[in-house]
Design a protein around this nucleic acid. Structure first.
Lengths: 104, 104
DNA sequence: AATCTACGTAAGCAGTCGCTTACACTGACC
DNA sequence: GGTCAGTGTAAGCGACTGCTTACGTAGATT
C-alpha cells in the first residue's frame, strides 16, 4: 500500500496511470506520449507501477500491453478515505466555520 | 500540491499528521510519541509538513505548537478525488463485474 | 538465418531522503 | 546574568530516485 502511495506521488506516473486508465496501451505508445524523456525512463516508471500492482501487464507477441489495475486503485482510494475519515470531517467543519467568520 | 502528496507518502509523516489532526501539540510531545527516532528527525519531518502547508505552527513562549491545516488537507483530498473521478468509477464497475463473473 | 521491432534491465550519475550527531538560538526560571 | 528546557538547523552519511546511455533478449518479418 505504501508502495502504491509512493508511486502515485510522482507526477509522471500519475500521468502514465491515467493513460492506461480506460484502455490498454503498449509500452511504446505510452512512451510516445512523453517527448521530454527516454523510453527507458518510462519503462522504469512502468516497473514501479507494476511492483505497486497499480498496473497489470499482458503480453501480446512482441508487445506488452498495460492497463490500470482497478482493485489496487480502489484499495488505495479506500485507504486514503479511511485516513481522511479519521478526523478530517471535524477539521473541515472547523475550516468552513473559520471561513464564514472571515467573511463576516 | 505535489509537495503535499509527497509528504503524505511517508508513513511517519502520516502518523505525525494524525497526531496533530484534532489537537495542537508541541514539537517535544510529538517527538516523544516516537521512540525509535531522534527528536531532530521529527523536527525535520515537521519542516516538510510545514513547507507542504499541511501543518500550521504557532509559537507559545519556548514551545512551538503544531496543528493540521484543514484547508490544505481538504485541497489534497479534493485533488485526489478529482483524480479518481477521471475514470475510476468505470474501472470499479469493471472490477465488480469481473468479481461477479469469478464468483459464478 | 539474418534482421528488425518492442521492450526490459544493468550501470552510472546527480540529486534527494531520512536519519544521526553537533551546534545555535530563544524564552523561562533562578 | 547564568542555566535550563524547547526547538530549529547545519553537516555528513548511506540509501534511494529519476534519468541517460548501452546492452540484452524475445518475437515478428524478410
Amino acid at each position: 500500500m505504501d508502495l502504491a502511495l509512493k508511486a502515485i506521488a510522482e507526477p509522471r506516473r500519475r500521468e502514465i496511470l491515467r493513460l492506461v486508465w480506460t484502455s490498454e496501451l503498449a509500452a511504446t505508445d505510452i512512451a510516445s506520449h512523453f517527448d521530454d524523456v527516454t523510453r527507458s525512463a518510462i519503462s522504469q516508471h512502468l516497473g514501479v507501477l507494476r511492483r505497486a500492482k497499480l498496473v497489470a501487464e499482458r503480453r501480446d507477441g512482441n508487445r506488452r500491453l498495460y492497463r490500470a489495475n482497478p482493485e489496487e486503485l480502489v484499495a488505495l482510494r479506500t485507504f486514503l478515505e479511511r485516513y481522511w475519515a479519521s478526523g478530517l470531517e471535524r477539521l473541515q467543519d472547523a475550516a468552513e466555520a473559520a471561513q464564514r467568520i472571515k467573511e463576516m
